[in-house]
């Protein structure tokens, strides 16, 4: 698997798109810090950006890579290598190269502006790790969609739709249903619904950092327990790990059955 990962990874790292992605984050980081000149403010802005952007990039790259590397995949399939190894190795190649672009792209500007001398390093690590998690999750989901759809256009369409659903539509539906059922107790619903969407989940982890004062303003006992103690943080992280694993498992299972 290390070998497969190595080839996917080096292939991707040399591709133009990884560089574009890296350059984008470098630019974003430097521009933000140049305009704000304040690390913690930069981090807050980035948190809002990353929750939407990393899933989008992960989705697009995941689908694109899968369709573009069909030849590579077929070449490998005829070799004495396990299928799960081929797909998992390629998946890791995409996810890790994207995560690395993110980490390096944002890391350099923040280091240049004195990250280690500031007190925001924990927030910055939270930012990077939730970005990396979202990348892993959405690359896996995108590859799954590509595995289920041989038609490139269709697969691409579904993948973008999936991103749009998780990034915007889901929250819209959630808000709408909460307003319709405003007379009922909703704190259970609100929490469970947020947990079923990885983007919302990462957003909640960010809220726990930035908006805890507002979250504790609500009377529900569940909210109080969830946001007021470490329960919220522990539950969100474990759920995020769960979200990372099931698309990978789905991906490998589908890959076992797929015809090439």
């Amino acid at each position: 698997m290390i070998k497969i990962f190595k080839y996917s990874f080096s292939d991707l790292m040399r591709s133009r798109w990884s560089l574009v992605y890296l350059a984008f984050y470098l630019l974003l980081g430097f521009v933000l810090l140049f305009l704000n000149n304040d690390l913690s403010k930069g981090i807050i802005t980035l948190m809002n950006v990353i929750v939407i952007l990393t899933p989008m990039i992960g989705t697009i790259f995941g689908v694109m890579y899968f369709y573009n590397s069909r030849e590579f995949t077929e070449l490998l399939l005829a070799q004495p290598v396990k299928r799960s190894v081929i797909f998992f190795g390629q998946y890791l190649g995409v996810s890790i190269s994207l995560s690395l672009s993110l980490i390096i792209g944002l890391g350099i500007p923040f280091l240049a502006y004195g990250l280690f001398r500031s007190g925001v390093i924990v927030n910055f690590l939270l930012l990077l790790s939730s970005g990396a998690f979202l990348t892993f999750i959405f690359v896996a989901l995108a590859i799954c969609i590509a595995l289920f759809n041989t038609n490139k256009i269709k697969g691409f369409g579904y993948a973008i739709l999936m991103w749009l659903f998780f990034a915007v539509i889901y929250d819209g539906l959630m808000l709408l249903s909460m307003m319709v059922f405003a007379d009922y107790p909703l704190d259970n619903f609100a929490l469970v619904a947020s947990f079923l969407n990885p983007i919302d989940l990462s957003r909640i982890m960010i809220l726990l950092k930035l908006d805890i004062s507002a979250l504790l303003g609500y009377t529900g006992a569940l909210f109080q327990r969830f946001f007021g103690t470490n329960l919220g943080l522990i539950a969100s992280w474990s759920m995020l790990v769960f979200w990372t694993f099931w698309p990978i498992i789905l991906l490998i299972r589908k890959a076992q059955k797929k015809n090439f």
Partner: peptide
Amino acid sequence: YVVNKTPETIVLLRSLFVDI
């Protein structure tokens, strides 16, 4: 204003939909 009416919606703070 939405949060005043339905406090639980606070979990949607900072989401793209809310920005929209």
